[in-house]
């Protein structure tokens, strides 16, 4: 399953096929993910993946009976505080809308993952503004840097503010409810002509970090630039991600959460689910659908339907984490 697709359309239906006999109907899974832009809930139930449109009777049933009481967390990304161009002159307003969305979730998240580009220009004022807005979630937040957060001082300011006890350029891991979370940095020391980079020091640390974990441990890897190659022409991939993934492929459930491309996208490869989140700030074009990857102005009434958050639920004993993309609209 190496097909990469961006989904905008809406769809309906439950999963009925299980061609690989692994509990996941690939065709159905893609169908499920076709809801990503509008909000959908997908989870494994009794080895069969089921999907429900948010807001339907089924979805609320699932939320109350299947998900509640387990580990729930939220991913936000690419807040680009300081950005003020026509693609979104009010990134403060949309970040506040994301906070409202988080606070309105039926189950309170245990923590939030921010997958980078907190700021637009790495300035302390921008970081201050984001910190102040996110305080209203009353939820711990784990950060990894985007390239916009490490512009002028090799990431020193970022590490001092957001990754004090991290290793190297800001990577770290932690455990929550039996799930092992790994925050990686792939925006430093980039080479001319290349993609995102993890580097040898971080790869060695990762290898050692997971070495002693039993293969049944669910793994969540989060980093800014996608750890799968989405569109190398625009730098949407990471040079040495295959090496990193080789260290976690023995685990039964691996979820890779990224940002950077300002749109939701999903791919499943064996036990690994790759997912990119909405931005809370502005939209970027689908791969290859514009001359370049720059900010895209969309009609004002559509902007909030293309920005959003990702709600993630881990149900113990299940193979995969349930990912729900919810727009700000």
């Amino acid at each position: 399953m190496t097909k990469t697709r961006l989904f905008h359309s809406n769809a309906n239906g439950l999963i009925e096929h299980d061609h690989n006999r692994d509990g996941i109907d690939r065709r159905g899974f893609l169908k499920c993910m076709a809801w990503a832009g509008t909000g959908a809930l997908c989870l494994i139930e009794g080895g069969v993946l089921k999907s429900f449109a948010l807001g339907t009777r089924n979805a609320s049933q699932v939320q109350s009976h299947e998900v509640a009481g387990r580990l729930t967390f939220v991913q936000i990304s690419d807040s680009h505080m300081g950005f003020n161009k026509p693609a979104n002159p009010d990134v403060i307003g949309t970040l506040k809308a994301a906070v409202d969305k988080i606070n309105a979730l039926p189950q309170r998240p245990e923590f939030i993952l921010h997958t980078g580009d907190i700021s637009h220009l790495s300035s302390p004022d921008e970081f201050d503004t984001v910190d102040q807005i996110l305080t209203a979630t009353h939820t711990p937040i784990f950060f990894v840097p985007g390239e916009h957060d490490v512009l002028n001082d090799d990431g020193k300011t970022f590490r001092e503010r957001y990754a004090k006890n991290s290793k190297g350029a800001g990577w770290y891991s932690f455990d929550k409810n039996g799930v092992h979370f790994i925050g990686l940095v792939n925006v430093m020391n980039l080479k001319a002509g290349g993609l995102g980079t993890l580097g040898n020091e971080q790869l060695e640390w990762l290898r050692d970090d997971v070495k002693h974990l039993p293969s049944s441990t669910p793994i969540v890897v989060f980093a800014h630039i996608p750890l799968w190659t989405i569109y190398p022409e625009w730098g949407w991939g990471t040079e040495d991600s295959a090496q990193a993934l080789s260290y976690v492929k023995r685990f039964g459930s691996v979820t890779v959460l990224n940002g950077h491309i300002h749109q939701t996208m999903q791919k499943v490869e064996g036990n690994v689910t790759f997912h990119t989140a909405f931005s809370t700030a502005f939209v970027q074009p689908a791969p290859g659908k514009a001359d370049g990857p720059g900010p895209m102005k969309v009609p004002g009434d559509q902007l909030r339907s293309l920005l959003g958050i990702t709600d993630v639920n881990y149900v113990q004993g299940r193979h995969a984490l349930a990912l729900v993309d919810a727009s700000l609209a």
Partner: peptide
Amino acid sequence: AYFCSIHPKMV
């Protein structure tokens, strides 16, 4: 030779 150090595909 030079590049954009945050968008390294730009050379």
